[in-house]
Structure formats: C-alpha cells, structure tokens
C-alpha cells in the first residue's frame, strides 16, 4: 500500500543571534512499507524524525529526496480526489480545529468539498461520521474549546474519516490524552482497522501502544531506521541496543520492575 524509499529531509536552522546557520538532517535515508489493511507503528524519541516522516507521507511537507509510493504510484496530492486518499491525524487536538467553527461545521466542510451532497445528505453524512467515532449528536453545536480532549480527538478523527481515506497517518494521536481516554481512542483506531480495513501509519513513542495496536514496527533513531519488522519478533528479540533500551524503559516492563520502597 505505502512504500517509502530512501526518504531524506533536512531543515535549515538560522540562529537568532549568531549569524551562522546549520542544517539538521531530520530524516536521513529511511525505507519501509506498510501492507494494505495493516497498522504499522513508527516509534522513536523526540527528534528521531518520526513526525517529519508522517508529514511527508501526508503531503504536508515535501521531502528533499527519496520516494513515497502509494499503491505503487508516486504520491501526489494535487487533485481533490488524490488529496482525499491520504489523511493525517494530529497530536494537538485543540490546535487542529478552527476555534471559530462548531463541530458540525468542521465535519461538514470536508463532506461538502469532496462529495456533492444535498443538504439532507450532508446532515446524514455528518451524523454518520459522528456515530462511527462515538460522538453524541448534540455535540455538533459545540465549539472545540467546549469539548474534552478525548471528544476533540474524536472530532479530528471523524473529520479525516469523512473523506473516506484509504490511508491514515496518525501522529501521536493519544499522547496528550488522559490514560482512560487514551484507551478509548486506541480502541477506536483498532476498530477502524478491523471493521473498515483502513491502513494506518501510527506514530507513537509508547511501545505499549505499539504492542497492542500494530502488526509491524519501525524503530527510528536520529533520522535512520534502527530496526524494522514484525512487532512480535522485534519485541521478543530486539537486534539493536537502542530497541532494547526503549523496551527496558517502559514502566511495568519486566526489566523496569524495581522497587524503591
């Protein structure tokens, strides 16, 4: 479904006071692929380049070099139809919703834009995506800041789903949420994958989430792939020290169970 080949992207950092500028290689030659209907997790610490890859795949940024193939074709977001296929879910739920748009308007916008709908069909469409993401209908008249973090994330997901994407990129969609809400949203993602067969690239720094959600995992370290394979295999016998460290750092992991008293 998705194939990323030798992806590279660097940023120029210009100092405010010192006049020298330097280049940071955010992503430095990354290859991996995502099978149709599966969830692949992209893990790594902050600064490992995982968000940059996600934004490149979603077409929010242009890579310096390398290729992103979707269904065997070079990625292209220039037409409405092609843009619709790949959607992206943000970590910052408050920031990714226009503060002046009610939930209903925010959800109607993509529907109106992509499908020619009558007013009644539009209403049904909004009701449908709200239902499928577990949002109560009366929330459609609320503004984003009136919602809880979990409800907002559901709106963001609903908005992406409204476009009936084939591929979903989720950039740390639960890390800013409360534990119990995290579980609810993760369950939503897992249901989406099982029921509608949506292919996903799931970015996270939490290996516990990877274990419970994804089939394949790409471990990133400073812009390069440290390890890549099936979740079971990678977790059972990590090949690199870095993956080992990540696994050992998890609270509740066997190695981390030391007691202070």
């Amino acid at each position: 479904m998705l194939k990323v080949i030798n992806l590279k992207k660097s940023y120029n950092i210009t100092g405010l006071y010192d006049h020298g500028s330097h280049t940071v290689k955010a992503v430095d030659g990354v290859d991996f692929s995502v099978k149709k209907g599966s969830i692949t997790a992209l893990v790594g610490e902050s600064g490992s380049g995982k968000s940059t890859i996600a934004r490149c795949v979603a077409g929010l940024e242009t890579p310096d070099s390398g290729e992103i193939l979707i269904d065997g074709m070079k990625s292209d977001y220039s037409t409405k139809e092609k843009r619709r296929r790949v959607q992206y879910i943000f970590q910052d739920t408050l920031g990714s919703l226009n503060p002046r748009m009610r939930v209903g308007e925010a959800l109607a916008e993509p529907l109106k834009y992509h499908f020619e709908l009558t007013a009644a069909a539009l209403r049904d469409g909004v009701a449908d995506v709200m239902l499928s993401t577990g949002l109560r209908p009366e929330l459609s008249s609320k503004y984003p800041h009136e919602l809880s973090g979990g409800q907002r994330q559901r709106v963001v997901i609903a908005r992406a789903l409204a476009m009936k994407p084939q591929f979903l990129v989720a950039d740390e969609p639960v890390s800013s949420l409360d534990v119990s809400v995290q579980a609810q949203i993760l369950k939503l993602f897992s249901t989406l994958n099982e029921v509608s067969g949506t292919t996903m690239l799931f970015i996270t720094h939490d290996l516990r989430v990877v274990r419970s959600l994804a089939q394949d995992v790409v471990v990133l370290q400073s812009g390069r792939v440290a390890e890549y394979g099936q979740v079971e295999a990678v977790f059972a016998s990590p090949k690199t020290v870095y993956t080992r460290t990540l696994l050992d750092s998890i609270p509740g992991a066997p190695a981390a169970k030391k007691k202070g008293g």
């Binding site: 979603a58 077409g59 929010l60 977001y77 037409t79 409405k80 843009r83 619709r84 959607q87 992206y88 943000f90 910052d92 920031g95 990714s96 919703l97 226009n98 503060p99 002046r100 916008e109 993509p110 834009y113 992509h114 963001v156 908005r159 992406a160 476009m163």
Partner: peptide, 26 residues
C-alpha cells in the same frame, strides 16, 4: 502556522478558501 490551517490543506481546500474560512475569521 497553526495545525488547523494544515488540517484545511489536508482537505484539499484552495488557498483563497483557507484564507477566507480559516485565517481571516481568526
């Protein structure tokens, strides 16, 4: 720079729609 402007780009809105609907009101 805000994420909701990115979100509008993801929908595929034209630049003038993004400016009119998402930037100016804010």
């Amino acid at each position: 720079k805000l994420a909701y402007v990115d979100a509008a780009r993801l929908i595929g809105l034209r630049r003038r729609d993004i400016i009119r609907r998402h930037i100016l009101p804010n």
